[in-house]
Amino acid sequence: MSPPDDPRGEMHWSPLDERTADALLDGRVAARDLPRALHPLHEVIRQAAAPVGRAPLPGEEELVRAFAAAVGPVPGVSSTSTRRKPMLTRLLTLKAAAAAAAVLFGSGVAAAATGALPGPMQTVAAHSLASVGWSVPDPGHATTHGHAVTTTTQPSTTTVPSTTTVPSTTTVPSTTTTPPIVNSSNLPGLCTAYNASTSGGTETSKPNLGSTAFSALAATASAKGESVEQLCAGVATGSNGTPHGSSTAPVPSTQPTLPPEATQPHGNSSSSGPGHSTSVPGSAHASVSGAAHAGGGAAGTGVGGTTTTSASASR
């Protein structure tokens, strides 16, 4: 009777063919559908299978914790906050790098030139630009610029990780709600930028008076009862001097200047990203020229430059 003696079950006839055996082990067959001779077998299998309960098991909590900790990261998926966090950090770091580049090589140069970037950024900008022969204010050496920034901007409640040449938790001064009046010493720079924008001729390069920098210009003109054109007409612009002695100083052709709309406050960002950047001819260059006259401290451009950073980073 032992199985090895009768591996094929040939000693007696049995209704138990291979298919029935498979069904029995699957639990796919009810006793009533089986010959009586197979009922004991069916019953033993049924009981051995013993339907599993859903009750808590010993060691359950510890194992669940250990399992959760051991589950590896899921690439490209972020369904929980714990997983979203590192992804977000990484994403923001990338944006920060892009924004920092834009600040240093884009229209943010204007803000840097006027010393209006937040302290740490200004320091970085000053050192970076110094390395290519441009002199811009460094808050480490000219405290009045830092003071100008703090008095003309208000701390943002929004963390803008983009600024980050400094740590991502640093808050960046955000735009003031009312455009500041432009310091007269900064008018030449702004006007040069404005004129350069208008002379660009294309639709996309039109100056955006809604932008913070130009709205400051508009506010200044309005305060004087003039149009921006009239205001600027009475201001000697950058053609009469540059900090580096040449008005034709080359601006890097690859300069990723931002479109005028990108200078809008970041709460009102337009849809164009850095990839769509429209050049503002001469704006950076002109602002640098303006800085030569002004020596920095322009609230309007400073805010605008900062906002540029924010806008590009928020995408």
Partner: peptide, 11 residues
């Protein structure tokens, strides 16, 4: 599995 169940059935 068929051999196993045949043996058990016989037993």
């Amino acid at each position: 599995q068929h051999r196993a169940l045949r043996a058990l059935e016989a037993r």
